[in-house]
Computed example of a mutant assay.
Amino acid sequence: MDDKNCKDCIQIENLKNKLESFEKGLKNSEEKAYGMVLKLQDRVGTLERQGDKNEERVLMIFNILNEIKDSVKVIADKIDDFERHPPGNENMEALKLDMKELSVRIKTVEDKPARRWDEATRTIILVLVTQIIMFIISRILK
């Protein structure tokens, strides 16, 4: 049995070499997977921080919208009061010009939150999609 040229010994030696090669490959794969998991954890942490920032921005936008709503109500009340109790004719032209300017300002103020809302919505959707993708990737790599 000490014959190193025997057929079974050669096959055992070949199997041993293949097993060692397989174990090295497995170890390399495990190291790569661990590295990928670390990178994904960092990315998830970054996304969570961005999500917190976006949540703060959304709250700020809602506060601004409430302030604008209150301002528009005050302006509408003033317009109603003006319509109920119009001033004398000498000031009517000046008031008409002021009303036109007010209308332009109101339109500008109303358009601002819509643009901000679109940006906030886009950001929220991006964060949600990114988090879903990260969740799926983390499940695949498990």
Rank of each mutant, 00 (worst) to 15 (best):
58 V>A: 05
16 K>M: 11
124 I>C: 12
83 E>V: 08
76 A>H: 10
10 I>E: 09
119 E>A: 07
129 V>N: 09
8 D>I: 11
12 I>K: 14
70 D>E: 14
97 L>C: 04
72 V>L: 13
23 E>P: 02
55 E>C: 03
30 E>L: 01
70 D>Y: 05
85 H>E: 05
80 D>G: 02
4 K>F: 12
89 N>V: 06
85 H>Q: 07
109 V>M: 07
102 L>G: 12
123 T>L: 05
142 K>D: 04
30 E>H: 05
64 I>M: 03
91 N>F: 11
21 S>N: 10
104 V>D: 05
5 N>E: 10
129 V>R: 12
3 D>F: 10
38 L>A: 07
64 I>E: 06
128 L>V: 14
51 G>L: 13
44 V>F: 01
46 T>K: 14
117 W>K: 14
98 D>S: 08
32 K>C: 06
5 N>A: 05
33 A>T: 08
72 V>G: 01
103 S>K: 11
76 A>M: 11
72 V>H: 08
65 L>Q: 07
68 I>E: 01
138 S>Y: 00
96 K>V: 04
10 I>A: 11
82 F>R: 08
63 N>V: 02
8 D>A: 12
142 K>M: 04
136 I>N: 03
80 D>A: 13
25 G>Q: 09
20 E>T: 08
48 E>Q: 12
63 N>C: 02
10 I>S: 09
131 Q>N: 09
66 N>W: 00
67 E>W: 00
142 K>L: 03
11 Q>L: 13
105 R>F: 11
25 G>M: 04
53 K>T: 14
122 R>E: 10
89 N>E: 15
44 V>A: 01
83 E>W: 05
80 D>M: 09
45 G>W: 00
64 I>P: 00
4 K>Y: 12
118 D>S: 13
1 M>T: 10
124 I>K: 14
96 K>H: 07
65 L>P: 00
30 E>Q: 06
17 N>Y: 08
71 S>W: 07
28 N>V: 00
82 F>K: 04
128 L>S: 15
119 E>T: 02
67 E>Y: 01
63 N>L: 03
3 D>H: 07
125 I>L: 15
92 M>C: 06
59 L>F: 04
78 K>V: 04
51 G>P: 00
95 L>C: 03
116 R>P: 00
83 E>F: 07
133 I>H: 08
7 K>V: 05
97 L>N: 13
45 G>P: 00
52 D>Q: 11
107 K>I: 02
71 S>R: 05
113 P>S: 03
139 R>A: 09
11 Q>N: 05
95 L>Y: 02
136 I>H: 04
120 A>K: 02
56 E>R: 12
53 K>E: 15
67 E>G: 01
99 M>F: 06
37 V>Y: 04
